[in-house]
Simulated scan of single mutants.
Amino acid sequence: MKKLIASLSVWLFALHSFAGDSIVLGSSTFLESEIMGEDRPFMVYLPPTYGVSENLYPVIYLLDGDIHRFKGFVGVLESLSTETLDKQVQESIVVAVPNTNRSRDLTPSPMIEWKFKNQILDTFTQTGNAKQFRKFLESELIPAIDAAYRTSQKRVLVGESFGGLFAADTLLKSPSVFTDYLIIDPTSLWDNNYLNREFNSSGKVLNSKSRVYFAFANNSHLGEIGLTNYKWGTTFASSVIDAKKGMSQQQYFENETHGTVALLAWYNGLKVLLPFTK
């Protein structure tokens, strides 16, 4: 296992009470990755009972894991997993993985000009490195987390937009790396319907026992681009749900857009994938 290097623990979210105590949300650290050829930062949240029990905990890997998404996601998880909101989901460790090169690592196929019906949607200098990034997660980061913390066999991948595209591609290519997938409004428009083409060519039989929760937003305000992304995304989700015979589900949030759907997706997805059994 590659050497896990812990940086100085930082206060990610601190509020001072009248007594002068601090509320610490987690710690920041990094891993020297030989696979990626760079230092990869990540943040870790431990549930409230971690220090006073010998329990094993599920681990949630949060893509696009910047400080703001980390704070928001952990806030939802901790509220749902404690008596604050009637302990609806399991307490879990969260590992947030920030981007160093988002378009490079989260896209599964190389593309310099991303087009839809001859319209250029975006241009990139690097894309198509999802396979290598997945190898980093599987061979370096996950073993490092399992060695450092009391982890159970339950492992959840959370991805939104490009992160949702990456998570969906992982479900097709290496489904057993994670036991559960929370896929939020994936960029299904990528590479001319990449996900459905890959499913039809190699993913018709999803043998893993992984469960999947798909969340989709209403992006009709984007016209044909938004409608097509939704159509291709839900077609892929329906194919996965049919193949997995009831182990997965999808949900549409009519009043949310691509930029606002995450909070409700986290709330509902966690309750589906990590329900607390009393």
Rank of each mutant, 00 (worst) to 15 (best):
L85A: 10
L62Q: 01
V89Q: 13
P110R: 06
V95I: 15
P108R: 02
L25R: 03
N101K: 04
G65P: 10
E83Y: 11
T49D: 14
L80R: 06
Q90V: 04
T100N: 11
F73R: 00
F133R: 05
V24F: 07
R69W: 08
V74M: 00
M36Q: 12
S27T: 13
Q132S: 02
F73Q: 00
Q119A: 13
F116I: 07
L31M: 11
S109V: 11
S139K: 13
M43I: 06
P108W: 03
S139F: 08
D66L: 04
D64N: 06
E113K: 14
E38W: 00
Q126A: 10
L85S: 09
Y50N: 07
T107I: 06
V59E: 00
G51V: 00
F73I: 04
L141P: 09
D105Y: 05
W114A: 06
E138I: 14
L80S: 05
Q90D: 13
L141E: 06
N129P: 04
F42K: 08
T100D: 08
P110T: 12
M111S: 13
I35T: 15
G51P: 02
E34S: 12
I60C: 06
Q132D: 03
E32N: 08
I60E: 12
A130Q: 04
K131A: 14
L137C: 13
N118H: 14
K115T: 15
D64G: 02
L121Q: 15
L137P: 14
